[in-house]
Design a protein around this nucleic acid. Structure first.
Lengths: 227, 227, 227, 227
DNA sequence: GATGAATGAGACTTCATTCAT
DNA sequence: GATGAATGAAGTCTCATTCAT
């Protein structure tokens, strides 16, 4: 839970801003309150959805957790589905930029690998983004539009960037496993594994996500430098 | 007499014999039909659960798909939860033996790796076991007992066997990545990735599970022989 | 639970006897078995109905308790309602004769009163007839036909006989409370009270039915002689 | 989005104002309406339970009779059981005070007896309290908690008060039947009888509750004065 | 805008009744 | 005749959604 999850990139829907904002004082304060409420709802909803799954989560509980009335949810989101979509959108969006940026840097792959591991652990695995990803995986099949958005806006960009970087590395003889260009998923796979494992089996056998990822990176790229 | 309440009833269907078969003794025939029905329910339920998730799946649809009446489900399973648990149990159980057996054989790791890939692709990825695993991942957190069962009966056995084999290989200098003994999950990770990807993004970009797994195996163990 | 409740006076319904009974041996044995089963069902049903009430009692449990299959119940009784009616009929019928007989005897009222108390305690309160009466009270309103039967076959006869006897006693100056002729229910009221109390409050405060009834009799008729 | 599951909703009725009333502050108005609805449900439920028994009564019918939606019942009562318990509690509670008060007055027993008869007839037998008592008798065995409550809060208090008063009367030579101190139930028995009779046999033979009770009182206490 | 009581479709589950065996 | 697996109507309860206040 490193940073305030909500940076809201997506469009806000009804809210306000429709009317020219002049009187600043009251108007602006109201907007802020409204935005804060919206964030509280998103945040509460994420926790409820993560804990019980989309279908089993109750908007009643979401409202209670967010400290608003049930009806208020509907002032910000058309329905339960829209709320769910917005969670994914608003919480993953801001993250993609960061990732792309990292991938574009020209530092050696071994160093980059270490950075990616740290980025994943600190910005995903140890935050609620882990839940977002889990939700995406578990509920995604029932939200085709969302899967498409996620693929288009997140995966294709990340994997696209990764492929380019990997190709350069292969061309430069920096790495030997050329199959990575075809399957950058292999880099992400241990992350997925860590997320799933943590939700199911940590009670029985802890799995150290950082070490797991570093092990894979080492196997893929050789000795990985600490971040 | 008095109660207008109802006057229930319900002739059963022409007893179709859709399931079951042969002739044999009456008693045995009945048992077979009953078992066949049970299987039909399990099968139908798996499909419904896989398609909509546990909470959103309707037993009504399960019954329809299985060709039985709603009440019949309750002759075989106490409730929806029990049905779900039984799906996992009955379909994963028999598979574990096979996997363990394969892991115990003394063939070279490279060959074994190829066999494992084929086993996964043919016995999991291309069958309904894929759905079982997906369900386990998606609904597991809400079925702690089931996660425990799965860990105890499936994962600990498979990973236990794998660790032993890998340790031997490390000791014999057969492989160089000793971290695999600590993290056999790295071998399984691409399988998980393939399952999740297929459910979410195959529409946009196909991911060849067999090739993905072979790529990882090759990276881990060097050139992998075809099975 | 003094005597085998079942004396079956009422007509038996489907059973048999339709065909001339000649071959005695097998045929008769079968009839006996069938009758025994019928009694077992009635008996089991009474206990289930008494314990849970008519609506909440399950024929499944009745069958189990009677040691027969569920379908067998329907060989003897058209449906749950009929089963209920038959319980009342078959278990109260034989009792009425006895009561009437007692009321017709010419012994002094004080003695008679003692006999009635004993009869009630031993043949009703301490047997399953108590449950019959309770069921009649609790479920009666929903079985108008049954209430009618009960009134016609049981109450009107008993109260009719009682009134005659009481009138004679009044005429003879044997008792002073002439209102008893109008309200013989006053004699029965403590019995009803005892039955209801025993089902609800015996846990908190025992109520000695015999003493309660004797107290009322004493008040009504003066010193009552032990039976 | 995906789920064909539904698209529930349900505009509420024109908010009829059938219940509640006046104008006053908004908040208060709402509370009043809510309370009125609660009462309507209790009232409707009592009638349904009285007519069909607890198990056979349908909450659907209760809702219909109360003029509310099914779900509304659950806003006020956890479940069917709770609704039932609340009926007994809320309708008997206020009555106990009255009864106790009457028993404490120092008027002569004969007068008191007349008052008790009138109280019973007017406040119980001719009101829905009759149904409450009937329900208590018929369903009590399946609601042990309720029976306990009823015994503790109602019966023990009433009988306790009665015993004291009767003991005083015996000591003062006001009455001769000392057994009444041990069995105040004898005073109540005709009331129970009247309630049961009215539900079952009034069609065949009317039983005048007031006269029945007065007859018993007269027998117990001598000439009873009109109330 | 915010609230939360009210709504009612729909889910799970039970169980009286039937009928092939 | 006896059995009990199968049926499906009907009941209880939940919860997404609405709208008067």
């Amino acid at each position: 839970m490193t940073r305030p999850v909500s940076k809201r990139a997506g469009p806000r829907q009804p809210a306000s801003s429709r009317v020219g904002g002049s009187k600043k004082g009251t108007r602006q304060r109201r907007d802020e309150q409204s935005a804060a409420r919206r964030d509280a709802i998103l945040s509460a909803a994420l926790e409820e959805f993560a804990a019980r799954g989309f279908a089993a989560a109750r908007l009643d509980d979401v409202a209670k957790r967010a400290g608003v009335a049930k009806g208020t949810i509907y002032l910000h989101f058309r329905d339960k589905d829209a709320l769910f979509r917005e969670i994914i959108r608003s919480l993953m969006g801001p993250f993609v930029g960061t990732i792309e940026q990292v991938l574009q840097s020209d530092i050696p792959l071994k160093v980059l690998a270490g950075q990616v591991v740290e980025l994943f652990v600190r910005e995903v695995f140890e935050t609620r983004r882990k839940d977002i990803i889990r939700l995406m995986m578990t509920e995604g099949p029932r939200f085709p539009k969302l899967a498409e958005f996620y693929y288009r806006e997140v995966l294709s960009k990340i994997f696209g960037g990764a492929r380019k970087r990997l190709q350069r590395a292969v061309d430069a003889g920096e790495i030997k496993h050329a199959s990575l260009v075809r399957f950058p998923q292999l880099i992400a796979a241990p992350g997925i594994m860590a997320i799933i494992w943590s939700g199911l089996f940590d009670r029985f056998e802890k799995l150290d996500a950082r070490e797991l990822l570093r092990a894979q990176m080492q196997i893929l790229f050789g000795e990985v430098e600490s971040a």
